[in-house]
Simulated assay, not measured.
Amino acid sequence: MISTTDIESLIAAALPGAKVQVQDPNRDGQHFNAIVIAEQFSGLTTIKQHRLVNDALKAYLDSGAIHALQLKTYSPEQWQNFSVQIS
């Protein structure tokens, strides 16, 4: 079973400097939610941003260790605009 800490570490290793928060809302070790803020996402579509994260977790996604991963990805600029809107 993979932990939220393991997932955070794998994403951070693939996207140096990224801010990563992962939750296991069902507490089942298979269904996760993640927010990733990374400079590498600048100028990329959401699909391309998600692919970068999924590539970091490919072995766990392919093996079924991670059954579901809900992603919210942002460049730092997107995150700043998002957080201003919800304030």
Rank of each mutant, 00 (worst) to 15 (best):
M1Y: 11
I2M: 14
S3L: 13
S3W: 09
T4R: 05
T4G: 08
T4E: 12
T5G: 10
T5Q: 14
T5R: 14
D6N: 12
D6I: 05
D6H: 06
I7C: 01
I7T: 00
E8W: 05
L10D: 04
I11T: 03
A12N: 07
A12I: 04
A12T: 08
A13L: 08
A14T: 00
L15Q: 03
L15V: 05
P16D: 10
P16Y: 03
P16Q: 09
G17M: 10
A18N: 03
A18Y: 03
V20A: 01
V20P: 02
V20H: 00
Q21H: 12
Q21W: 11
Q23F: 06
Q23P: 04
P25H: 08
R27Y: 10
D28H: 08
D28V: 13
G29A: 07
G29R: 04
G29T: 03
G29D: 02
Q30R: 15
Q30V: 01
H31G: 00
H31D: 10
H31I: 09
H31K: 11
H31F: 10
F32I: 02
F32S: 00
N33F: 06
N33W: 06
N33V: 13
A34P: 09
A34H: 08
I35N: 01
V36Y: 02
V36Q: 03
I37H: 00
A38W: 00
A38T: 07
E39V: 13
E39W: 08
E39Y: 10
E39H: 15
Q40C: 06
F41K: 05
F41G: 01
F41H: 05
F41S: 04
S42Y: 08
G43P: 04
L44R: 11
T46K: 13
T46E: 12
K48L: 04
Q49C: 09
Q49G: 03
Q49V: 07
Q49T: 06
R51P: 01
R51W: 06
R51E: 10
L52I: 09
L52Q: 10
V53L: 05
V53F: 00
V53P: 01
N54F: 00
N54H: 11
N54K: 10
D55K: 14
D55R: 14
A56I: 02
L57S: 00
L57C: 04
L57Y: 02
K58D: 08
A59E: 14
Y60E: 07
D62Q: 11
S63K: 13
S63V: 11
S63Q: 13
G64T: 07
A65T: 07
H67A: 09
H67R: 15
H67P: 01
H67M: 06
A68P: 06
A68G: 09
L69M: 13
Q70V: 12
Q70W: 05
Q70L: 11
Q70I: 08
Y74G: 00
S75D: 08
S75V: 05
Q78N: 12
Q78D: 15
Q80F: 05
Q80E: 15
Q80Y: 10
N81I: 12
F82K: 12
S83L: 10
S83I: 09
S83G: 02
S83W: 08
V84C: 05
V84S: 09
Q85H: 12
I86R: 15
S87L: 13
